[in-house]
């Protein structure tokens, strides 16, 4: 199974021959090393001249893009914050304005109401005074009439009883009775 016999056999695919270790067949090391060096040089140049700079550029570009995008996003976020603040301010203003208008309207209505109430009160007072006066007049009229009628009636009764009615006394008597 020495390596030289194996090398002489070329390839040991034949089942009858000893398999050996192809790795220790030094006759093909030169060939493998040569092609390996060719391969490595090709790979090195492909990688270092084309692939790696390109990927590095792409990665750098992406990093730049991401940084820019993050900055833009920050800016937009700030803008959105500002817009929100403005919106809130507008809302507060509008609310205050509404409050003010409501207050004004309320005050106006109150004034009108007060005026109307005052006027109504005055009218009512005037009417009441008038009515009272009328009632007083009527009452005075009625008392006078009663006095006259009482005096007349008393005079007549006295006359009917056969006496002579003194107008003055009758009157005084009626007065006294009226007071009682």
């Amino acid at each position: 199974m020495a390596t030289d016999t194996h090398a002489a056999a070329g390839h040991a695919a034949d089942a009858a021959s000893a398999p050996g270790m192809p790795q220790l067949d030094f006759s093909n090391w030169g060939n493998q090393i040569f092609w390996l060096l060719v391969t490595l040089v090709v790979i090195y140049f492909v990688l270092s001249r084309i692939a790696l700079p390109r990927i590095a550029a792409v990665l750098a570009e992406r990093q730049g893009t991401i940084t820019n995008d993050i900055a833009a996003a920050e800016e937009l976020k700030a803008k959105a914050g500002e817009a929100e603040a403005a919106y809130n301010q507008a809302l507060v203003d509008a609310r205050a304005e509404a409050q003010r208008i409501v207050g004004e309207a309320k005050a106006e209505i109150q004034t009108d109401l007060d005026a109307a109430i005052a006027k109504a009160d005055a009218e009512i007072a005037a009417k009441a005074a008038e009515s009272e006066k009328a009632i007083a007049e009527i009452r005075a009229g009625a008392v006078d009439s009663i006095r006259d009628v009482a005096a007349d009636t008393a005079k007549e009764i006295v006359a009917a009883l056969g006496g002579k009615a003194d107008a003055k006394a009758v009157k005084a008597a009626v007065e006294a009775r009226m007071k009682g």
Partner: peptide
């Protein structure tokens, strides 16, 4: 082991 199997 491989050397003993195949190369000795």
């Amino acid at each position: 082991a491989l050397l003993l199997m195949f190369a000795v």
